[in-house]
Amino acid sequence: MALKALILDWAGTAVDFGSRAPMGAFVEAFARVGVTISIAEARGPMGLPKRDHIAALMRDEAISARWQTAQGREPTEDDIDHVLAIFEPLNVEVIAQHADLIPGLLDVIAEARRRGMKIGSTTGYTRPIMERLMPLAAAAGYRPDNVVCAGDLAAGRPSPLMMYRTFADLGVWPASACVKLDDTEPGIAEGLAAGTWTVGLALSGNAAGLSKAELDGLAPDERAALRARATDKLARAGAHFVIDSVADLLPVLDAIEARLAAGLRP
């Protein structure tokens, strides 16, 4: 069985090294309702649909306590919608500053297509955010065959529904002939739920959270320690393979095809 599709996440996987665009927007959105959150706290639920992400932050014990201090009550469903309405345009506003392609992406995509694979994508971003990001990526040469956004379906990550839509859009099956590439635990869970091979990204996305320049500035032992922590997190989430970034993917595709040839499945 040959691989039929490569399905990528967006921020931290295909674009935006370090997955930095949403972070300031989350911090600012909460600040506008009187609640302080840190970048580290904002990163915690990354990979979830953005409404679910905000809900998860509000359930966090420390953030919930700050909310109650600021608002005099526990957060409600309406509060989730209110913060999302603040967050979304903030994210759209900064997206152009974080739209650079991850180094190596285009070479990997070109080789995957040469092998006959289709290129799918799912994202925790909403459709309005992606409507700003997609043309920027296309201008840089990245045009996946489909884009499924948070909010397009009844449920997003970690459910498999966005993956199912991608299979249907691309006309590919079985799931075991597809590979999901993602930098977050919910993104890995999405691939596992759908029955695909999953590959985690330790250094280009949320698991590390550093820009390319910041990562390149680390001492070798610091970089190794960061890689080890991120790799452990993604492996614990169930990733079949963990690599530094999309640039390292081609040997993994070879390894997966060898497993398929041996009769193995995800």
Rank of each mutant, 00 (worst) to 15 (best):
G151P: 06
A154F: 03
V148H: 04
V92E: 15
R113W: 13
L90I: 11
P103L: 11
L84Y: 15
M117E: 12
I109W: 04
A138P: 01
S64M: 12
M163K: 08
G124F: 01
P49A: 14
G151W: 12
R59G: 00
S159V: 01
M163L: 14
D152K: 13
D145C: 13
T122G: 03
H98E: 07
W67Y: 13
D52R: 14
I63C: 06
V92N: 11
P144K: 00
G156L: 08
V83Q: 03
E41K: 13
F87M: 10
E74Q: 15
I54D: 02
E61I: 09
N146K: 00
A140H: 05
L105K: 04
M162S: 11
M163C: 08
Y125C: 02
E77I: 06
G124I: 03
Y142H: 11
A55C: 05
L106Y: 06
P45F: 13
P49F: 03
D152P: 11
G120V: 11
R132G: 14
L48R: 14
P103K: 09
V94G: 01
P75S: 02
T123M: 01
T122A: 02
S121W: 04
A137P: 07
P128L: 03
L136V: 02
I109Y: 02
D100A: 15
I129Y: 06
G104C: 07
L133A: 14
K118Y: 04
M58I: 05
A85G: 09
A70C: 10
V92T: 12
R66A: 10
W67H: 01
G141Y: 03
R51T: 13
E77P: 10
W67P: 02
E61K: 14
P135E: 13
M162D: 01
I86Y: 00
L105W: 08
H53S: 08
G116Y: 10
V83D: 02
C149P: 02
R143S: 15
R113G: 08
H53K: 01
A96F: 02
E77D: 15
P128C: 05
M130N: 06
M117Y: 03
A155R: 11
L84S: 08
Q71P: 10
L90N: 02
I129A: 13
A139R: 14
M46H: 11
F87Y: 15
P144S: 00
A112K: 03
L57V: 06
D81Y: 01
M163N: 03
R157N: 03
I54E: 04
L153A: 10
A62L: 10
P144A: 00
E77A: 14
E41M: 12
I54F: 07
R127A: 15
S121L: 04
M58N: 07
G44T: 13
Q71T: 09
L105N: 11
G44Q: 15
K118M: 12
F87G: 00
L101G: 00
E74F: 06
R51M: 13
L84Q: 11
D60W: 03
S64R: 15
Y125K: 01
L90S: 04
G72A: 02
A42L: 06
V94F: 05
A99Y: 13
F87T: 00
A138V: 08
R127L: 07
L57N: 01
P144T: 00
D100K: 10
M46E: 12
R73M: 05
R59S: 06
E131V: 11
D52A: 15
T123A: 06
L106N: 10
G124M: 04
I109N: 05
T123D: 04
M46N: 14
P160S: 07
M58H: 05
A55D: 11
S64D: 04
R115E: 02
K118F: 05
